[in-house]
């Protein structure tokens, strides 16, 4: 890669790292785009927390059905093999550890994997959590997709989150436009960078990062 990833390239990279046969929940916003790069006919099954496995692409034209939406309330389609279930079952399969991967956006992620993505903490903000806490706690792996730096230039991968938390030590990977971060028991490992050298990345972050063991 020559430069930082754009949103489509990020979605493609995340999709590349999802094993065939995975049951995956894509969060609202940027993660939704990952679906464009997944082989939904061949292996990956999408879960939507409003009660469906086997969700297909966004519906258009005559395929729009108000009774068939994703968690962002956009009209979607159903694929062969789809199944519907009620909300308690939908979250039970998540909380029960049956969902392999959940992909979400974030305000901040800590080096330990704490996730902050539901509330800015601003006094006038109306709190709204949806399924974020359930997903963060329930999915076996939580991947975050986010820009590495906020608009004010501060890093969003941090030693400790300052925004209100969604879940503790739940994030295993962070995908950003500049690098991929694996949050492991041995620290934050950076297997790939995009348009930035490892040393410059290390300098711009307050979190200590490492090259993968075979490249140290």
């Amino acid at each position: 890669m020559s430069g930082p990833l754009d949103r489509d390239e990020m979605a493609r990279i995340v999709a590349r790292d999802i094993p065939d046969g995975s049951y995956v929940n894509l969060g609202i916003g940027q993660p939704t785009k990952v679906a464009d790069y997944l082989d939904l006919a061949g292996g990956v099954v999408l879960h939507t927390e409003n009660g469906m496995l086997g969700m297909g692409p966004i519906a258009t034209g005559d395929d729009v059905d108000p009774d068939l939406t994703n968690a962002g309330k956009q009209p979607v389609t159903e694929l062969p093999g789809a199944a519907y279930f009620h909300h308690a079952d939908s979250f039970a399969m998540m909380r029960g550890g049956h969902l392999d991967i959940c992909i979400m956006g974030a305000f901040q992620v800590s080096a330990r994997g704490d996730l902050a993505n539901w509330h800015t903490g601003a006094p006038d903000a109306i709190p709204a959590v949806g399924g974020a806490m359930d997903l963060a706690t329930g999915a076996r792996d939580v991947f975050v997709m986010m820009s590495l730096f906020a608009k004010d230039g501060t890093a969003k991968l941090v030693p400790e989150c300052t925004y209100p938390l969604t879940g503790l030590a739940c994030v295993s990977r962070v995908y950003t436009e500049l690098a991929i971060f694996h949050l492991t028991a041995d620290g934050v490992v950076v297997p790939e960078t995009f348009g930035i050298e490892f040393d410059e990345l290390a300098e711009r972050l307050d979190v200590e990062i490492r090259r993968p063991p075979n490249r140290e």
């Binding site: 927390e49 308690a88 939908s90 109306i126």
Partner: peptide, 23 residues
């Protein structure tokens, strides 16, 4: 949003899965 900001309605936010499971 208008009622909440005017202090005219009470809000209890419950994570979606807990909401379903509590019912």
């Amino acid at each position: 949003d208008g009622l909440y900001r005017a202090g005219k309605i009470e809000l209890e936010v419950v994570p979606q899965g807990n909401l379903a499971e509590r019912m």
